[in-house]
Protein backbone atom coordinates (compact mmCIF):
# COMPACT_ATOMS: atom_id res chain seq x y z
CA UNK A 1 0.00 0.00 0.00
CA UNK A 2 2.83 2.39 0.87
CA UNK A 3 4.58 1.67 -2.45
CA UNK A 4 1.32 2.29 -4.25
CA UNK A 5 0.87 5.66 -2.58
CA UNK A 6 4.43 6.73 -3.39
CA UNK A 7 3.96 6.05 -7.11
CA UNK A 8 3.21 9.31 -8.92
CA UNK A 9 0.29 9.23 -11.32
CA UNK A 10 0.22 10.81 -14.76
CA UNK A 11 -3.30 12.13 -14.81
CA UNK A 12 -3.85 12.72 -18.50
CA UNK A 13 -2.15 9.57 -19.76
CA UNK A 14 -0.93 6.16 -18.73
CA UNK A 15 0.50 5.62 -15.25
CA UNK A 16 4.11 6.70 -15.41
CA UNK A 17 6.88 6.63 -12.84
CA UNK A 18 8.53 9.85 -13.93
CA UNK A 19 9.37 10.66 -10.30
CA UNK A 20 11.50 8.04 -8.55
CA UNK A 21 12.02 8.17 -4.80
CA UNK A 22 15.77 8.38 -4.11
CA UNK A 23 16.04 9.16 -0.41
CA UNK A 24 14.30 10.60 2.61
CA UNK A 25 15.39 12.59 5.63
CA UNK A 26 13.45 13.53 8.73
CA UNK A 27 14.40 16.35 11.04
CA UNK A 28 12.90 15.01 14.25
CA UNK A 29 13.73 18.21 16.14
CA UNK A 30 11.79 20.32 13.64
CA UNK A 31 8.46 21.63 14.90
CA UNK A 32 7.39 23.28 11.65
CA UNK A 33 9.46 23.17 8.44
CA UNK A 34 9.45 26.44 6.49
CA UNK A 35 11.78 25.68 3.57
CA UNK A 36 14.18 23.20 1.99
CA UNK A 37 16.98 23.68 -0.52
CA UNK A 38 20.32 22.27 -1.68
CA UNK A 39 23.82 23.71 -1.63
CA UNK A 40 27.19 22.67 -3.02
CA UNK A 41 29.59 22.07 -0.12
CA UNK A 42 33.32 21.44 -0.31
CA UNK A 43 35.11 19.81 2.62
CA UNK A 44 38.45 18.00 2.65
CA UNK A 45 38.76 18.45 -1.12
CA UNK A 46 35.43 16.75 -1.78
CA UNK A 47 32.56 18.74 -3.33
CA UNK A 48 29.11 17.31 -2.78
CA UNK A 49 25.48 18.34 -2.91
CA UNK A 50 24.00 18.82 0.55
CA UNK A 51 20.42 19.41 1.66
CA UNK A 52 19.49 22.47 3.73
CA UNK A 53 16.33 22.47 5.85
CA UNK A 54 14.85 25.41 7.72
CA UNK A 55 12.40 25.75 10.60
CA UNK A 56 11.40 29.07 12.16
CA UNK A 57 14.42 29.12 14.48
CA UNK A 58 16.97 26.75 12.93
CA UNK A 59 18.71 26.03 9.63
CA UNK A 60 20.30 22.58 9.27
CA UNK A 61 22.88 21.25 6.83
CA UNK A 62 22.62 17.55 5.80
CA UNK A 63 25.34 15.46 4.10
CA UNK A 64 24.77 12.26 2.13
CA UNK A 65 25.82 9.23 4.19
CA UNK A 66 24.76 6.40 1.90
CA UNK A 67 22.84 6.34 -1.40
CA UNK A 68 19.55 6.70 0.43
CA UNK A 69 20.27 8.39 3.76
CA UNK A 70 21.34 11.78 5.11
CA UNK A 71 23.06 12.87 8.31
CA UNK A 72 22.81 16.27 9.97
CA UNK A 73 26.18 18.07 9.88
CA UNK A 74 25.36 21.29 11.66
CA UNK A 75 22.43 23.42 12.85
CA UNK A 76 22.53 27.21 12.95
CA UNK A 77 20.23 28.65 15.64
CA UNK A 78 18.52 31.96 14.74
CA UNK A 79 16.31 32.70 17.69
CA UNK A 80 15.66 36.45 17.45
CA UNK A 81 13.73 36.66 14.16
CA UNK A 82 11.91 33.75 12.47
CA UNK A 83 13.38 32.22 9.31
CA UNK A 84 11.04 32.78 6.35
CA UNK A 85 12.90 31.19 3.44
CA UNK A 86 16.19 29.84 2.12
CA UNK A 87 17.52 31.91 -0.80
CA UNK A 88 19.32 29.61 -3.28
CA UNK A 89 22.67 30.94 -4.54
CA UNK A 90 23.37 29.19 -7.85
CA UNK A 91 26.96 27.97 -8.44
CA UNK A 92 28.03 29.12 -4.96
CA UNK A 93 29.87 26.76 -2.63
CA UNK A 94 29.82 26.60 1.20
CA UNK A 95 27.36 29.50 1.61
CA UNK A 96 23.70 29.32 2.67
CA UNK A 97 21.58 32.46 2.42
CA UNK A 98 18.39 32.90 4.44
CA UNK A 99 15.65 35.51 4.76
CA UNK A 100 14.29 36.30 8.23
CA UNK A 101 11.29 38.32 9.33
CA UNK A 102 7.75 38.30 10.60
CA UNK A 103 5.20 38.82 7.81
CA UNK A 104 7.78 40.33 5.46
CA UNK A 105 11.53 39.86 5.15
CA UNK A 106 13.31 42.06 7.69
CA UNK A 107 16.86 40.84 7.19
CA UNK A 108 19.03 38.61 5.03
CA UNK A 109 21.84 36.57 6.54
CA UNK A 110 24.63 34.37 5.18
CA UNK A 111 25.36 31.10 7.00
CA UNK A 112 28.81 29.68 6.45
CA UNK A 113 31.74 27.65 7.72
CA UNK A 114 34.90 29.57 8.53
CA UNK A 115 38.07 27.50 8.05
CA UNK A 116 40.07 30.25 9.79
CA UNK A 117 38.27 29.71 13.07
CA UNK A 118 37.11 26.13 12.28
CA UNK A 119 33.56 27.12 13.16
CA UNK A 120 30.16 27.68 11.63
CA UNK A 121 28.89 31.26 11.84
CA UNK A 122 26.45 33.72 10.27
CA UNK A 123 26.72 37.29 9.05
CA UNK A 124 24.22 40.04 8.30
CA UNK A 125 23.88 41.07 4.63
CA UNK A 126 20.96 43.48 4.63
CA UNK A 127 18.10 44.82 6.75
CA UNK A 128 14.90 46.68 5.80
CA UNK A 129 11.38 46.05 4.56
CA UNK A 130 12.49 43.62 1.87
CA UNK A 131 9.83 42.78 -0.73
CA UNK A 132 11.74 40.47 -3.09
CA UNK A 133 15.15 38.80 -3.23
CA UNK A 134 17.04 36.48 -5.59
CA UNK A 135 20.46 34.84 -5.58
CA UNK A 136 22.38 35.16 -8.86
CA UNK A 137 25.42 33.41 -10.31
CA UNK A 138 28.88 34.60 -9.24
CA UNK A 139 27.93 35.14 -5.60
CA UNK A 140 25.52 38.03 -6.23
CA UNK A 141 22.24 38.81 -4.51
CA UNK A 142 19.60 41.34 -5.60
CA UNK A 143 16.85 42.62 -3.31
CA UNK A 144 14.14 45.26 -3.38
CA UNK A 145 13.11 47.08 -0.22
CA UNK A 146 10.66 49.86 0.57
CA UNK A 147 10.62 52.84 2.87
CA UNK A 148 7.58 55.11 3.20
CA UNK A 149 8.94 57.34 0.45
CA UNK A 150 10.80 55.17 -2.00
CA UNK A 151 11.85 51.76 -3.24
CA UNK A 152 15.47 50.66 -3.24
CA UNK A 153 16.78 47.90 -5.53
CA UNK A 154 20.30 46.78 -4.73
CA UNK A 155 22.79 44.12 -5.80
CA UNK A 156 25.34 42.81 -3.28
CA UNK A 157 28.46 40.89 -4.31
CA UNK A 158 29.71 38.41 -1.68
CA UNK A 159 33.25 37.42 -0.88
CA UNK A 160 33.97 33.74 -0.26
CA UNK A 161 34.20 34.44 3.46
CA UNK A 162 30.65 35.81 3.55
CA UNK A 163 31.45 39.52 3.56
CA UNK A 164 29.97 41.94 1.05
CA UNK A 165 32.65 42.96 -1.49
CA UNK A 166 30.65 45.42 -3.54
CA UNK A 167 27.18 46.98 -3.84
CA UNK A 168 25.39 48.36 -6.89
CA UNK A 169 22.14 50.34 -6.76
CA UNK A 170 19.63 49.57 -9.53
CA UNK A 171 17.11 52.13 -10.75
CA UNK A 172 13.75 51.26 -9.14
CA UNK A 173 10.52 51.10 -11.16
CA UNK A 174 7.55 53.09 -9.81
CA UNK A 175 5.71 49.91 -8.81
CA UNK A 176 6.87 47.54 -6.08
CA UNK A 177 9.01 44.68 -7.37
CA UNK A 178 7.51 41.30 -6.41
CA UNK A 179 10.12 38.87 -7.81
CA UNK A 180 13.40 38.71 -9.72
CA UNK A 181 14.92 36.23 -12.18
CA UNK A 182 18.35 36.35 -13.80
CA UNK A 183 18.44 36.14 -17.58
CA UNK A 184 20.34 32.91 -18.20
CA UNK A 185 23.44 33.30 -20.32
CA UNK A 186 23.42 37.11 -19.94
CA UNK A 187 25.43 37.90 -16.82
CA UNK A 188 24.44 41.58 -16.75
CA UNK A 189 20.70 41.19 -17.45
CA UNK A 190 18.02 40.82 -14.77
CA UNK A 191 14.22 40.75 -15.03
CA UNK A 192 11.61 41.40 -12.38
CA UNK A 193 7.84 41.37 -12.02
CA UNK A 194 5.97 44.26 -10.38
CA UNK A 195 2.82 44.72 -8.34
CA UNK A 196 1.37 46.51 -11.37
CA UNK A 197 1.82 43.29 -13.34
CA UNK A 198 4.70 44.35 -15.56
CA UNK A 199 7.98 42.69 -16.43
CA UNK A 200 10.96 45.02 -16.04
CA UNK A 201 14.52 44.57 -17.32
CA UNK A 202 17.74 45.94 -15.74
CA UNK A 203 21.35 46.23 -16.74
CA UNK A 204 23.15 44.99 -13.60
CA UNK A 205 26.47 46.53 -14.58
CA UNK A 206 25.16 50.08 -15.00
CA UNK A 207 22.04 49.85 -12.81
CA UNK A 208 19.87 51.12 -15.69
CA UNK A 209 16.18 50.22 -15.88
CA UNK A 210 15.97 49.28 -19.55
CA UNK A 211 12.34 48.38 -20.18
CA UNK A 212 8.92 47.94 -18.58
CA UNK A 213 6.49 45.62 -20.40
CA UNK A 214 2.94 44.87 -19.30
CA UNK A 215 1.95 41.23 -18.76
CA UNK A 216 -1.81 41.67 -19.29
CA UNK A 217 -4.83 42.15 -17.06
CA UNK A 218 -5.89 38.48 -17.26
CA UNK A 219 -2.93 37.45 -15.13
CA UNK A 220 -2.69 39.63 -12.00
CA UNK A 221 0.14 39.19 -9.48
CA UNK A 222 2.36 37.33 -11.95
CA UNK A 223 5.65 36.11 -10.48
CA UNK A 224 8.77 35.60 -12.63
CA UNK A 225 10.77 32.41 -12.08
CA UNK A 226 13.17 32.11 -15.00
CA UNK A 227 14.24 34.10 -18.06
CA UNK A 228 16.41 33.52 -21.11
CA UNK A 229 17.08 35.35 -24.36
CA UNK A 230 16.85 33.58 -27.71
CA UNK A 231 16.72 34.93 -31.27
CA UNK A 232 16.21 38.49 -30.08
CA UNK A 233 13.28 37.61 -27.80
CA UNK A 234 13.16 37.49 -24.01
CA UNK A 235 11.38 34.37 -22.76
CA UNK A 236 10.04 34.66 -19.21
CA UNK A 237 8.50 31.84 -17.15
CA UNK A 238 5.73 33.31 -15.02
CA UNK A 239 3.48 31.75 -12.40
CA UNK A 240 -0.03 33.03 -11.83
CA UNK A 241 -1.26 32.46 -8.27
CA UNK A 242 -4.38 34.56 -8.90
CA UNK A 243 -5.19 33.88 -12.57
CA UNK A 244 -8.82 33.18 -13.34
CA UNK A 245 -9.98 29.86 -14.70
CA UNK A 246 -11.08 30.05 -18.31
CA UNK A 247 -12.89 27.55 -20.51
CA UNK A 248 -10.16 27.49 -23.12
CA UNK A 249 -7.14 26.85 -20.93
CA UNK A 250 -8.34 25.93 -17.42
CA UNK A 251 -6.33 27.40 -14.56
CA UNK A 252 -2.88 28.46 -15.75
CA UNK A 253 -0.28 27.86 -13.03
CA UNK A 254 2.76 28.58 -15.21
CA UNK A 255 3.05 30.43 -18.51
CA UNK A 256 6.00 30.93 -20.86
CA UNK A 257 5.74 34.38 -22.44
CA UNK A 258 7.95 35.75 -25.24
CA UNK A 259 8.65 39.49 -25.05
CA UNK A 260 10.25 41.61 -27.71
CA UNK A 261 12.26 43.96 -25.49
CA UNK A 262 12.66 46.43 -28.38
CA UNK A 263 8.92 47.03 -28.78
CA UNK A 264 7.54 45.81 -25.45
CA UNK A 265 5.08 43.53 -27.28
CA UNK A 266 4.54 40.01 -26.00
CA UNK A 267 2.86 36.73 -26.86
CA UNK A 268 2.05 33.67 -24.79
CA UNK A 269 4.11 30.65 -25.85
CA UNK A 270 2.65 27.92 -23.64
CA UNK A 271 0.25 27.45 -20.72
CA UNK A 272 0.67 24.87 -17.96
CA UNK A 273 -2.62 24.32 -16.17
CA UNK A 274 -3.81 22.55 -13.05
CA UNK A 275 -4.30 18.83 -13.68
CA UNK A 276 -7.85 17.47 -13.99
CA UNK A 277 -9.51 17.10 -10.60
CA UNK A 278 -7.67 20.13 -9.21
CA UNK A 279 -9.82 22.88 -10.72
CA UNK A 280 -10.16 26.28 -9.09
CA UNK A 281 -7.60 28.43 -7.36
CA UNK A 282 -5.42 25.76 -5.80
CA UNK A 283 -1.85 26.76 -6.39
CA UNK A 284 0.16 27.56 -3.24
CA UNK A 285 3.79 27.90 -4.27
CA UNK A 286 6.03 26.80 -7.07
CA UNK A 287 9.57 26.41 -8.35
CA UNK A 288 11.06 26.24 -11.83
CA UNK A 289 14.22 24.59 -13.09
CA UNK A 290 15.07 24.58 -16.80
CA UNK A 291 11.85 23.59 -18.60
CA UNK A 292 10.18 21.92 -15.62
CA UNK A 293 7.88 23.49 -13.06
CA UNK A 294 6.67 22.11 -9.74
CA UNK A 295 3.93 23.46 -7.48
CA UNK A 296 2.21 22.53 -4.24
CA UNK A 297 -1.57 22.45 -4.59
CA UNK A 298 -3.99 23.09 -1.74
CA UNK A 299 -4.97 19.43 -1.90
CA UNK A 300 -1.52 18.67 -0.45
CA UNK A 301 -0.29 17.21 -3.73
CA UNK A 302 2.79 18.29 -5.72
CA UNK A 303 2.35 18.57 -9.48
CA UNK A 304 5.19 18.61 -12.03
CA UNK A 305 4.88 20.14 -15.52
CA UNK A 306 6.89 20.15 -18.73
CA UNK A 307 6.57 23.91 -19.31
CA UNK A 308 7.40 23.86 -23.03
CA UNK A 309 4.81 21.18 -23.77
CA UNK A 310 2.29 22.58 -21.28
CA UNK A 311 1.72 19.10 -19.85
CA UNK A 312 1.39 17.92 -16.28
CA UNK A 313 3.84 15.04 -16.15
CA UNK A 314 3.41 13.73 -12.62
CA UNK A 315 1.49 14.26 -9.40
CA UNK A 316 2.81 13.32 -5.97
CA UNK A 317 -0.33 12.64 -3.98
CA UNK A 318 -0.50 13.60 -0.29
CA UNK A 319 0.83 10.95 2.02
CA UNK A 320 -1.21 9.31 4.77
CA UNK A 321 1.38 10.93 7.10
CA UNK A 322 0.61 14.43 5.86
CA UNK A 323 0.24 16.89 3.01
CA UNK A 324 3.15 18.17 0.95
CA UNK A 325 3.92 21.81 1.79
CA UNK A 326 7.18 22.46 -0.09
CA UNK A 327 8.41 21.67 -3.61
CA UNK A 328 11.90 22.72 -4.71
CA UNK A 329 14.20 21.68 -7.53
CA UNK A 330 17.65 20.65 -6.31
CA UNK A 331 20.62 22.66 -7.63
CA UNK A 332 21.55 21.68 -11.17
CA UNK A 333 18.36 19.71 -11.64
CA UNK A 334 19.59 16.92 -9.38
CA UNK A 335 15.99 16.09 -8.45
CA UNK A 336 12.84 17.32 -6.81
CA UNK A 337 12.70 17.97 -3.06
CA UNK A 338 9.24 17.55 -1.56
CA UNK A 339 8.77 18.55 2.06
CA UNK A 340 6.13 18.25 4.74
CA UNK A 341 5.61 20.60 7.69
CA UNK A 342 6.69 17.82 10.11
CA UNK A 343 10.27 18.02 8.80
CA UNK A 344 10.13 15.09 6.35
CA UNK A 345 11.93 15.74 3.05
CA UNK A 346 11.97 13.32 0.14
CA UNK A 347 14.32 13.61 -2.83
CA UNK A 348 12.89 12.35 -6.14
CA UNK A 349 14.73 11.82 -9.41
CA UNK A 350 12.81 13.29 -12.36
Amino acid sequence: DVAEQLTPVLLDGPREESLQLVSELKDSSCSCAVDVSTVWWEAAGCRELRVVTASESTVSLWEPLAPDSWGKVYTWHLREIPVIQIIPLPDTCNLVCVALGELEIGEIRLLLYSSETDSFKHSLVKTGNIKAVVGLEDQRLVSSSRTMQEQQVEMVLFSETGGSKDRQTLMPPEETVTAFAEVEGMREALVGTTAGNSVVVWNLKTGQLLRKMHVGYSYPASICHRAYSDSGLLFVVLSHPLAKESESCGSPVFRVVAFNPRTGRSTGVMFSCLPPGHAGRQYLEGDVWDTTGAAVLTSGAVAVWDLLRGRCMAVLCPDPAGHWALARWATGGAGLLAGRRDGTVRLYRY
Binding site: M186, E188, A189, V201, N203, T206, Q208, L209, L210, R211, S229, S231, G232, L233, L234, A258, F259, N260, P261, R262, T263, R265, S266, T267
Partner: peptide, 23 residues
Protein backbone atom coordinates in the same frame (compact mmCIF):
# COMPACT_ATOMS: atom_id res chain seq x y z
CA UNK B 1 16.68 42.60 -37.46
CA UNK B 2 13.46 40.94 -38.62
CA UNK B 3 9.77 41.88 -38.65
CA UNK B 4 7.14 39.78 -36.81
CA UNK B 5 3.86 40.20 -34.90
CA UNK B 6 5.99 41.33 -31.99
CA UNK B 7 7.49 44.14 -34.06
CA UNK B 8 11.05 44.62 -35.21
CA UNK B 9 13.27 42.08 -33.44
CA UNK B 10 16.91 42.77 -32.70
CA UNK B 11 19.49 40.21 -31.57
CA UNK B 12 21.38 43.02 -29.82
CA UNK B 13 18.40 44.33 -27.84
CA UNK B 14 20.29 44.43 -24.53
CA UNK B 15 23.17 46.54 -25.87
CA UNK B 16 20.80 48.81 -27.81
CA UNK B 17 18.46 49.45 -24.87
CA UNK B 18 21.47 50.06 -22.59
CA UNK B 19 22.77 52.68 -25.03
CA UNK B 20 19.35 54.38 -25.21
CA UNK B 21 18.24 54.23 -21.53
CA UNK B 22 19.02 57.08 -19.12
CA UNK B 23 22.20 56.42 -17.16
Amino acid sequence: CSESDLGLISLNWFEELSAEAPP
